[in-house]
Design a protein around this nucleic acid. Sequence first.
RNA 1: GGGGUCUUAGCUCAGCUGGGAGAGCACCUGCCUUACAAGCAGGGGGUCGUUGGUUCAAGUCCAAUAGGCCCCACCA
Length: 901
Amino acid sequence: MRTLDKTYNPHGLEDRIYRTWEEKKYFHAEVDHSRKPFTIVIPPPNITGILHMGHAFDNTMQDILIRFKRMQGYNALWQPGTDHASISTEVRIIQELQKEGIKKEDLGREAFLERAWEWKKEYGGAIISQLKKLGSSCDWDRERFTMDEGCNRAVTEVFLKMHAKGYIYRGSRIINWCPVCNTSISDAEVEYEEQNGHLWHIRYPVIEADGSVSKERFVEFATTRPETMLGDTAVAVHPDDDRYRDLVGKEVFLPFVERRIPVVADSYVDMEFGTGVVKITPGHDPNDFEVGRRHGLQEINIMNDDATINENGAKFAGMDRYAARKQIVKELDEMGLLVRIEDYTHNVGTHERCHTTVEPLIKKQWFVRMDELIRPAADAVRNGTIRLIPQRLNAMYFNWTDNIRDWCISRQLWWGHRIPAYYCDNCGEVQVAEKAPEKCPHCKGTHFTQDPDTLDTWFSSALWPFETLGWPDKTEDLDYFFPTDVLVTGYDIIFFWVIRMIFSSYEQMGTYPFHTVLFHGLIRDEQGRKFSKSLGNGIDPLEVIEKYGADALRLTIITGNSPGNDMRFYFERVENSRNFANKIWNASRFILMNLPEDGKKPLFLDTRLPRGLTDADCWILARFNNTVREVTDNMERYELGIAVGKVYDFIWDEFCDWYIEMVKPRLREENAAEDASRQAALWTLETVLVGAMKLLHPFMPFVTEEIYQTFLDGFGSEERSEFAESVMISSWPVFREDFVFAKEEEKIGLIKEAVRGIRNLRSEMNVAPSKKTKVFVVSENAQKREVFSDSLVFFETLSHAQGTLLQADKTGVPEDAASVVLADVTICIPLDELVDRQAEIARLTREKERLEKELSRSKGMLANERFLSKAPAEKIEEEKEKQKKYEQTYAQICERLEALS
RNA sequence: GGGGUCUUAGCUCAGCUGGGAGAGCACCUGCCUUACAAGCAGGGGGUCGUUGGUUCAAGUCCAAUAGGCCCCACCA
């Protein structure tokens, strides 16, 4: 006989089920033109990473969508893979080497890369096995890596094409330099930190008309970085600033390096700030760089790559930038050029990885020109070709596209895609090509050196949606699965990744990579803080899975969350999810207990409605039907949190707490004689439970699979079908016309109200559970017998449960009785059975007041001409019905009150 | 400085296109009822940040305001 343990235990079960899925190749998708594809590419996790809550969030959402679409009959492909993550991996390897006392440079490029590949081999797979623990139904046969052979070819191809089109160029620009990582970093990798510093007020002597350095006339300005004065090539004032009008065009004297630099007028200067004078250091400040370019100023680099002062820094050469700062301030003071020092807090750019203060430097780097490329990316969102969910993120998206700057793609790192550019050893001429050319077209030299830099890690990620499907080859996969459908990711990488995928895809493929981007927020700790290593507040999803199961983790993550919103993670919430798994487990056990033991074909395999269905059966079928429609609708609108909430409520509240309780009497041995009714109940129980397992499967894949298969008991079909052998390849429930039972729904709705009324009464009147109470059900409705044909049984159940005899009676409400007045039925408990007459009066009075409020609202609406003329007819009808009910009920309550007092 | 977002029950949060205030946890009461105490039944508790406006009707739309958070830019 099919049995389940008393308590749900995900341990072991989840791994076992996942293995079966893999063995059966359910995750695998092949080109099949008879079916529509549905494709998601995974945001490739870094090979350095271990699974964190962010991954869990991201991948749970993707898995839900892909499982849903798979069940709906789509040829669903979830394309997995990992990212080489150039800088973060390189940093980690350097740290590892440090422990062995080895420096990256000592090892050399070749040996270092060997080391990196070893790292990839060792740790790259860890994240994959962790994703499997979560239940991710990726097509692992298609796993890719951003530095595998195909992706390498894709990267080179794109680089060459874009270079040929003039989108990629090499140029001198001011870039952010990290002196510790020894590489340039992109603007987006700079993190601003508020730091306490100083504002040094300094003055430069003016050069007099006779060419002498003035002893009396000075220009005063303030700076947070005095050491950069060594690279000053001008001071600037605002063109409208009357105070300095006569100075513009003159020169001032720069101490130490003894340079004469011009005073220029530029509207970049804020007249209000400080003295209205700014020193201009084009070599070490992005704004100054711009000013410098406008005025044709000299660009002087005063620093080495390790942020020590170089030979342009006169006597300070060789000093660290901070040591030089100290010394310069001291000497300026001695020269009488330091006016004062002020405390000042300001934002300082730091490298997000190592938090070193970045140094703006002018360097030759490779760039992608963005002005033209970005346009179609902005248009796609603007005209709705690509939909961002939630829509409010459009603003953030346009904030990026409207303020785009050229993308610096070269990195002075070793781990990554090598730039396909070769310099002639003889003349230095650069050739961009797949391989080193044989001859330099410029000087005919034959020896070349490849550019030592690698590409920004996002360069390859930007190609991810099509390179993983075979590009640059023309593959059938690409043709069939691309463009993909939905991208699921965090809003924090809109710029890094999403925008870059969109323009890259448009440029290379002529089409957008997906039509929808579903964003999720961040998972925070219970105090609302981000998870971070330094805070030590991280929660390891694997530990949660170990303790509560992957299903519980998934349900927790998705419940009550709406797209793009952050959420807090509480263990209490996981416990609740685990309890829900246990709940459905036990509901299943209950049904199994009542099934025949002979291993007969399960009843629900016959989808026709059986004889003997009662009102209760029809009601739950109708409620299920309704849930199917709503949940499907929510899923299609990506409202996953709402969808799962509805499934949860249906299963726990309607199915378990009401239907199973209603149906119990019919299952009892002594009622076995009424076989048709019993069979109908069992058929309904099975049909609804199995259907509910399907609805729940995308969210909680493991427990639903176990239950589904237990019920199918080996009778499943090997094909994808309604009763496939696995729930994950079974078909998603659809709305059924034969499950529409409006009348029965209404009846049971009434009965539920009645029962609640009785429970309320008993509870409020302090009726002891053991106390037997008479209950009269009074109805004006002549059809009451029919209405309550089920309810009698139901009441009996309750009475049994409560240890109380309840009985229905058609006589009127006795004088001395507490009662609940419903629309067309009154439920009462004789007062002699009860404690307190006053309590009943108080209760009825409250009820009366509530109704008065409702009535006045309703009357107001129906008296309003505009409402009557504008509102849809159904709405008005509905309101009239409501009012009628209110009035009836109100009258009854008044009567009861009178009778009591 | 620009943009976004949030403010709903003690806590954490749902609430789609305006029309009877919700969930989980916590709390209180009563139940070990033969699926489940990881459970069942019932209950208390909210002027939906503040002010004004649109509307017959606003948690829901508009404006202003206070406070929190996020992103971008970054004033030397």
